[in-house]
């Protein structure tokens, strides 16, 4: 075979050829831009924390930690406290987690443990995912005109029959904790379900086969083998769902009643940090805005911690299976 030199192969009109110096400059530039974009996300998060923290600083030095433990929100007297909002945020999210978590896990089991033929399961999964696509305000509107009228007779009957129990100690006159928590549960259900589905799907099929081979019933396999194996993934789903619930704003601002009180009753109006921001911020003056920035910082801290914990648990859960394979 005759040898052909590289120079001969490279013609000026050829589409092929080694990268030109221009290509190398472009390469370096492009990589620098990509690096900068990635770094920008880091900067953005830092900027968000610093900006909200910085704007909250005057209020922090003025009201101190008492802000977190007092209950009054009085703009005229310039006395601000967010204990009722913190209570409302945690209480409503916890109720939503209880309900949304239960249903979310049930649906994850329903979708992964051969209850439906694969094609139907895919359809049902789409239905649950579309639930996540409905905007928060639309759920708020639905809550006001469908859920509250539906709940009111039930709630008032419960109050009449079992008013002695602190959970039912008030009647439901309109907006309140129960409709807010119910809508919140519906909104976090897709999050919990989809992460739990992933956790259950990760379990190697042979684990289930082994359980069935031992003669377990379907539910013995689910409760004693599948759920414990997927436990850390499901825990992550619950924590992340909880994080979602803590920050949810519009539906709650429409349904919870925006009343700064601490009550165990499910039917009493309450308030949350996010709803406080939504309802007070647009019309707030200088002084109130400073206090609201402090409240925003509290919400930021709570949600960042909860989400970071959820992600850490999830990372742990995925790593466990990677090691097993």
């Amino acid at each position: 075979m005759a040898s052909v030199s590289f120079e001969q192969l490279k013609r000026s009109d050829s589409v092929s050829g080694p990268p030109s110096s221009g290509d190398y400059t472009l390469d370096r530039g492009f990589r620098a831009v990509a690096w900068a974009s990635a770094a920008l996300i880091l900067v953005l998060v830092a900027y968000i924390v610093l900006e909200i923290g910085g704007k909250a600083m005057p209020a922090i030095s003025q009201y101190g930690l008492g802000f977190l433990t007092t209950t009054e929100w009085n703009v005229q007297a310039e006395r601000f406290g967010i204990l009722p909002q913190i209570w409302g945020t945690l209480y409503s999210s916890l109720l939503a987690l209880l309900l949304g978590g239960l249903f979310g896990i049930a649906i994850a089991i329903f979708l992964t443990q051969d209850f439906l033929p694969p094609r139907l399961a895919a359809v049902f999964r789409t239905i649950i995912e579309l639930l996540a696509a409905i905007p928060s305000v639309v759920f708020g509107l639905w809550g006001i005109y469908v859920l509250i009228p539906l709940l009111r007779p039930v709630a008032n009957w419960l109050h009449d029959v079992a008013g002695g129990i602190p959970f039912f100690s008030t009647s439901l006159s309109g907006p309140g904790l129960a409709p807010a928590a119910l809508v919140l549960a519906i909104m976090i259900l897709p999050t919990v379900a989809s992460i739990s589905v992933d956790a259950l799907r990760q379990i190697p099929y042979k684990v289930k086969e082994a359980a069935y081979g031992m003669g377990t019933t379907r539910w013995e396999a689910i409760l004693k083998v599948m759920l414990p194996t997927a436990a850390s993934g499901i825990l992550a789903a619950l924590v992340l769902g909880f994080g979602r619930a803590l920050g949810e704003t519009m539906a709650l601002a429409m349904l919870i009643g925006n009343s700064n009180q601490i009550s165990l009753s499910l039917f009493a109006p309450a308030n949350t940090l996010a709803a406080l921001l939504a309802s007070s911020f647009p019309e707030a003056g200088q002084v109130e805005i400073r206090a609201l920035m402090y409240a925003a910082l509290a919400l930021l801290a709570i949600t960042l911690i909860v989400n970071a914990v959820g992600l850490a648990v999830m990372k742990f859960a995925t790593r466990k299976f990677e090691a097993e394979r």
Binding site: G247, E248, L311
Partner: peptide, 27 residues
């Protein structure tokens, strides 16, 4: 950097949307 950014991006997906409003209001 990639690990950190990935983690922060995941944290941001659970970030309360109202706080994005507060942030942009301030900025």
């Amino acid at each position: 950097l990639a690990d950190t950014v990935r983690f922060l991006a995941k944290v941001l997906t659970g970030f309360p949307s109202i706080l994005a409003g507060v942030f942009v209001y301030a900025v």
